[in-house]
């Protein structure tokens, strides 16, 4: 019993993912010893921060059995609208107002997703695709394509707040780790607790596993689904604000095209496209792998133009892993 249990652990998807990440890191480190510098984890955190936050939203939706492709567009609206308002002097120089407007944008489009999916019963892919088009169409129509850089002074202050800063002795370059890293950490912990220890959280898994059974058992299925899309919209807008702070920039298309990357991180991390599966830890590992591949392919001497291809291969690997695992489960019965 114990042996099979530990065997199951070492051959679980999560562990395979860990092996892949380690293997990739070892290969990179062998070719480029610079990989072992403390700058690497700091870079990874910076680069993976947005992906991870978006992946958390995506995971929530995927657990319920849906898929969300609207977060890049919702994110763009949530960063650009307050940015424009601030730029035109409508919003005062107060970070809080900025955040509130951003959250409002996230809420509105989250609501739209929620209504479309839970109450109008439109398949989530189509519904969020529609929301995405509406959001980005609205941006293009209302504001054009101008990049904006002016932001509240509070944001600049936050930008300068770092947990640690590593200065590379050789090059003199400094690598700061932003305090904003706490946002995804807190989000992840809270989410993990909610998913594991509240009835609502279990309800999300239940409806992803068997929607009609969840209804029979007595879960408020529609309300849970609705809430998921709203929460997802809110987290998305919060992430968009962080993007503005860290990138000093907002554009109407800044986040577009991120959806495949994020879905890849989730799927590789063990979320099932058919719902009912997904853990914070898995998504974290998935994000790590995707970010590693994205940021360090060039260290292996591979042209950055191969990035998209590489992400595609990683995604394929993730899907393959789950389907193989499913096949194995079947064979056991």
């Amino acid at each position: 019993m114990n042996r099979t249990k530990s065997k199951a652990f070492f051959t679980s998807n999560t562990m395979i993912l860990v092996y892949v990440i380690l293997a990739f890191s070892v290969v990179v480190a062998l070719r480029q010893p610079a990989f072992l510098s403390p700058a690497t984890p700091i870079n990874l955190c910076r680069a993976g921060l947005f992906t991870f936050c978006f992946a958390l939203c995506e995971m929530l939706v995927m657990i319920t059995g849906g898929i969300d492709v609207s977060f890049p567009a919702i994110g763009c609206v949530s960063m650009y609208v307050p940015m424009v308002l601030y730029d035109r002097g409508i919003l005062p120089d107060n970070g809080l107002y900025f955040v509130l407007v951003a959250l409002l944008c996230g809420l509105i489009f989250g609501l739209l997703n929620g209504v479309l999916v839970s109450y109008l019963r439109i398949p989530s892919l189509i519904a969020t695709l529609a929301t995405s088009s509406i959001a980005s169409g609205f941006l293009a129509f209302a504001f054009g394509v101008k990049d904006l850089t002016a932001m509240p002074t509070a944001f600049t202050k936050i930008y300068e707040m770092n947990l640690v800063t590593y200065t590379d002795p050789a090059s003199g370059l400094s690598y700061p780790l932003t305090v904003l890293i706490f946002v995804p950490v807190v989000l992840a912990v809270v989410m993990a607790l909610i998913l594991r220890y509240t009835m609502g959280g279990r309800g999300l898994y239940a409806m992803g596993g068997n929607l009609s059974a969840a209804r029979i058992v007595g879960f408020p299925v529609r309300r849970l689904q609705f809430t998921t899309y709203i929460v997802s919209g809110l987290i998305t807008s919060l992430t968009a604000v962080m993007y503005v702070i860290l990138m000093h920039n907002a554009s109407t298309t800044a986040l577009m095209g991120n959806e495949m990357l994020v879905i890849a991180a989730c799927v590789v991390g063990g979320c099932s496209l058919s719902g009912g599966k997904g853990t914070i830890g898995g998504v974290l590992l998935g994000t790590l792998l995707i970010t590693l591949v994205q940021n360090h392919l060039n260290m292996l001497g591979i042209d950055t133009r191969w990035q998209t291809l590489a992400v595609g291969i990683v995604l394929l690997f993730g899907v393959l892993m789950t389907s193989l695992q499913a096949g194995r489960g079947k064979g056991r019965v």
């Binding site: 279990r202 898994y205 596993g209 007595g218 879960f219 099932s272």
Partner: peptide
């Protein structure tokens, strides 16, 4: 009408937990 992705214990007890209006599992 069972949940394939949940454990035996959860499948058996969830209904009762909902009826008891449990918030924390």
């Amino acid at each position: 009408a069972v949940f394939p992705n949940l454990t035996v214990a959860e499948n058996i007890a969830l209904n009762t937990e909902i009826k008891d209006r449990t918030k924390v599992v």
